[in-house]
Amino acid sequence: MRVVIAEDLALLKDGLIRLLQAHDCTVVAAVDNGPDLHTALLHHHPDVAVVDVRLPPTFTDEGLQAAIAARTQIPGLPILVLSQHVEPLYARELLSDDAGAVGYLLKDRLFDIGQFIESVRRVAAGGTAMDPAVISQLLAPQDQSDPLAQLTPREREVLAEMAEGRSNTAIAQRLYITDKAVSKHINNIFTKLDLAPSTDDSRRVLAVLAYLNGTDNTPT
């Protein structure tokens, strides 16, 4: 897997390179600022890019902007964004082109290397990887009339796992239930939230995220 890394802290950049190389990845470019990232993405066309939000020269959201800009030129270019803090606002922007293949994780998730590598692979394969912290903020129901308030606790768990980007099998493993039970819960969730059913894992995840982000365009 060919990877581009954008991270301005040398210590973290070296760590990321080592970590990814240890898991069968080739780091084709490791940059430390926004403009270089944009060039590297367009030039190398990597299988996945791991990008820090805040980069020089402005130290604002340079990395995020460069990644979004590159995706307008190469639609669906897989990007995994890392940050010290997560904002549903940024998640919404990353997801807004509806092409999938995006991840948005706290840097804390690097502690669980297995999980992190799984997220990288998922994004590379066109799936999504959303941080639980983003999902929990989106999952807070606004009031009693909110359809989210009608979900059972189990359904909420399944919905959270699904929104983070996991497949049915992965959800079943994590919640210690059968694949069949997961499918049943997902059907219930889609009925309660009035979403069009889909058999494709990643389309389904995008539909759920669009719903949670309040950018859902499906007929209600």
């Binding site: 939000v53 805040r54 130290f59 604002t60 959201d61 010290q84 803090h85 904002e87 549903p88 606002l89 919404r92 903020q137 807070a140 606004q142 309040g214």
Partner: peptide, 23 residues
């Protein structure tokens, strides 16, 4: 708040609204 550094008042208030309990 980091989002204030990254996006200014504009983005930060939008981010605030997005995660607030009320619409």
């Amino acid at each position: 708040p980091p989002v204030l550094v990254e996006r200014g008042l504009h983005g930060a208030v939008h981010a605030l609204a997005l995660t607030h309990q009320l619409p």
